[in-house]
Amino acid sequence: MAGGGFSRLPNGTVVVAVTLPSPRAEGGMVRVLVHAVNRARALTRLRNLGLRAVYLRGNAHPPTPDEITAVLHHPDGLLWRATPERLEQLWQPIRALLGRQAGAAW
């Protein structure tokens, strides 16, 4: 894992951001955002999608305020975008990244 971190929100929930290798053929990295009750639950949500080797060690790269806003306004609370960020690329639901791979080991 290239980096990640979390931010605790005033209501007690957290937003976790992790940077991972892309599962797509073109490679590269993706930044994944998860909104959950706590850090453990956020990582469990990712592992349940097949991202088995996702761990959060430290808080070196916490989500930015823009990332927090994006994930809070999405109904699933689970988004991704390629890194480094391209201005024309928007945050996308996790289904767009995993596609038919959901449930497969990453």
Score class of each variant (00 low, 15 high):
A36P: 07
T69A: 14
P65V: 04
V32T: 04
P75H: 06
D76P: 05
V34Y: 07
L79P: 01
S22Q: 04
G77F: 10
W106F: 00
P93Y: 05
I94K: 02
L49V: 00
L9K: 12
A40H: 14
N38W: 05
L87C: 01
V54G: 00
A102V: 15
A60I: 05
L56P: 12
T69N: 12
E85W: 11
V32W: 03
A36E: 12
G3M: 07
W91P: 06
Q101F: 00
T13Q: 15
R86Y: 01
W80H: 07
N38K: 07
S22M: 06
P63F: 13
R81S: 10
L97T: 08
L46D: 00
V16K: 09
N38T: 06
W106R: 08
W80C: 01
R24N: 13
T44M: 02
P93G: 01
Q89M: 10
N48Y: 02
W106G: 00
A25I: 10
G12A: 07
P23V: 09
V30Q: 10
R47L: 00
H61N: 15
S7C: 11
H61K: 13
V16I: 14
V14G: 02
G77L: 09
S22W: 09
L49N: 05
P65M: 04
Y55K: 12
L46G: 02
V54R: 04
H35Y: 12
L87P: 14
G58P: 09
R95K: 10
Q92C: 04
V54P: 03
R8P: 02
L20N: 01
E88W: 14
V71M: 11
R8I: 12
T64W: 05
W80S: 03
G58D: 03
R8C: 05
H74A: 13
G4A: 08
G3H: 10
T83Y: 07
V15N: 06
L97E: 03
V16D: 11
T83N: 09
L33K: 04
G77R: 09
G77H: 12
V54M: 04
I94M: 15
A96S: 15
E88C: 07
R8L: 11
T64S: 15
V37N: 11
P23R: 09
G27R: 10
G58I: 03
A36F: 03
A70V: 13
S22C: 14
G3S: 14
A105H: 06
S22E: 11
A36N: 03
M29P: 00
L87K: 12
R57Q: 06
Q89H: 15
L9N: 05
T64Q: 08
R8W: 05
L49I: 00
A96H: 08
L98N: 11
H35C: 08
N48A: 05
R95C: 00
H61Q: 10
E26D: 11
S7M: 12
G5E: 14
